[in-house]
Amino acid sequence: MPSIYVKPRLRDAKKPDQGVLLVRRESNGKPIPAEGADVEHTPYIRRRLRDGDLVRATAPAKTVRAKAAVKPDTTHKETSQ
């Protein structure tokens, strides 16, 4: 089943400091975080979207950290005897 990115809506649009609604996942009952999550596009999620408990959102761009290339130490000193 396809997945979509959703966020819970604010409790009160005029008072954003009150937080977001607590909307639970259908599969395991854990709440969907305020920053959003990928969920399967099931009838349960469609109902939450239709009722306004969830809103579609754009998934944040995943930042890819470039791993520093590990260079071998080639500056070793050779001692001549």
Rank of each mutant, 00 (worst) to 15 (best):
A66L: 07
A37H: 08
R24A: 10
V70C: 06
P8G: 04
P8I: 01
D53V: 02
D38W: 05
G29L: 07
M1A: 12
R24G: 08
K62P: 11
I32F: 02
L22A: 10
V39L: 02
K77F: 05
Y44L: 03
T74V: 09
E78H: 12
R47H: 13
D53A: 05
D73L: 12
D17M: 12
K67R: 15
V6D: 00
P31C: 14
R48T: 02
P2I: 06
P8F: 00
G29W: 06
E35H: 05
E40W: 08
R24Y: 08
L21C: 06
A59T: 02
L54D: 11
P31G: 12
M1H: 10
G29Q: 06
R11T: 01
V39S: 02
T74R: 09
L54F: 01
G36L: 06
P33F: 00
V20P: 05
K14V: 09
S3R: 14
L49V: 07
E35Y: 08
D73I: 11
G52N: 08
I32K: 00
L10R: 01
P16M: 04
A34T: 04
G29Y: 07
S80Q: 13
V70A: 12
M1V: 11
Q81H: 15
S80F: 14
V23R: 01
G36N: 04
R46C: 10
T58G: 00
K14H: 11
P33N: 15
P33R: 10
L49P: 10
A34K: 01
T74I: 09
A66K: 12
A59E: 02
G19E: 03
P16K: 05
D51H: 06
R46N: 13
V39N: 04
A69G: 09
P16Y: 04
T63H: 11
G52D: 11
L22I: 14
H41N: 15
S3L: 11
R9F: 00
R65E: 13
R24I: 04
E40R: 12
A66E: 13
A68G: 12
L21S: 03
A57M: 05
A57T: 02
R50H: 15
I4R: 01
P60Q: 07
E40H: 02
V20A: 08
P72G: 13
H76Y: 11
K7S: 04
P2K: 12
P8H: 03
A61H: 09
T42W: 11
P8S: 01
K7H: 03
A66R: 13
R11H: 00
R24L: 10
P2M: 14
I4G: 01
Y44K: 02
A34Q: 05
V70P: 03
E35G: 09
D17N: 09
V23M: 11
K7G: 01
E78K: 14
R24D: 06
R46W: 01
L22K: 11
K77V: 10
S27A: 14
A66T: 13
R47W: 09
A37M: 07
T79S: 03
A59Q: 01
T63S: 15
D17P: 05
P60E: 14
D51A: 06
L54A: 09
I45G: 03
R46V: 10
L22W: 11
L10S: 10
R65Q: 15
D73F: 03
V39M: 00
I32T: 04
A13F: 00
K67E: 15
P43K: 09
K14I: 10
V20R: 03
L21K: 03
H76K: 15
V39Y: 00
V55H: 04
A68H: 06
R9G: 00
A57K: 04
D12Y: 06
